[in-house]
């Protein structure tokens, strides 16, 4: 069963029938983490790198920003029994649409975590999926190509 993670949203699960999915990542970033022993996984879809941009919004919804959302993602997975050293981290998104990135780097700046698998940057639109039963993580692009991360 697909559990959809919206924009600026977080979902965690330990139920093997679940697949966490976040659709149409542009410059936003999807982070999927998974503990293969506990079979616990979580996914975050954040928009922007730093909550300093707007602290009151970050307080209303910490999942908008990487620096407030990522720690929550880990914490929520710990609370389902995941352990830090076992967690595999995979990242997708962060597209750039302005030719020269020095002008505009939301896509690139969004991407700043230690990771085990990634499909980041360029100008692709991506849907990110994480299967809780196996930890299999893959990306689907608009032209229906599928990459495992």
């Amino acid at each position: 069963m697909d559990i959809v993670v919206g924009v600026a949203d977080l979902k965690v699960s330990n139920r093997p029938e679940h697949v966490l999915v976040t659709h149409a990542l542009g410059s936003c970033i999807g982070v999927a983490i998974y503990d293969p022993l506990a079979r616990v996984g979580g996914m975050l879809h954040f928009m922007l790198p730093e909550s300093s941009l707007d602290l009151s919004r970050a307080q209303e919804n910490p999942y908008m920003f990487a620096d407030t959302g990522v720690p929550r993602l880990f914490r929520e997975c710990y609370s389902l029994g995941a352990q830090k050293q076992r967690l595999r981290v995979k990242v997708a998104g962060g597209s750039q649409l302005f030719g020269r990135p020095e002008h505009f780097q939301v896509g690139r700046r969004n991407y700043n975590v230690l990771i085990h698998g990634e499909d980041v940057g360029g100008n692709k639109a991506r849907t990110l999926c994480l299967e809780i039963a196996t930890g299999k993580t893959w990306v689907r692009t608009t032209d229906n190509q599928i990459y495992e991360l």
Binding site: V7, H23, A24, L25, G26, S27, C28, G93, S95, L97, F98, G99, R100, H103, F104, V106, G107, N123, K124, A125, T141, T142, D143
Partner: peptide
């Protein structure tokens, strides 16, 4: 860039910085 309503062409678009 926001990404939520992408068409079949995906992000095949040139932005002018």
């Amino acid at each position: 860039m926001f990404g939520q309503n992408l068409g079949r062409e995906g992000l095949a678009y040139d932005g002018y910085p």
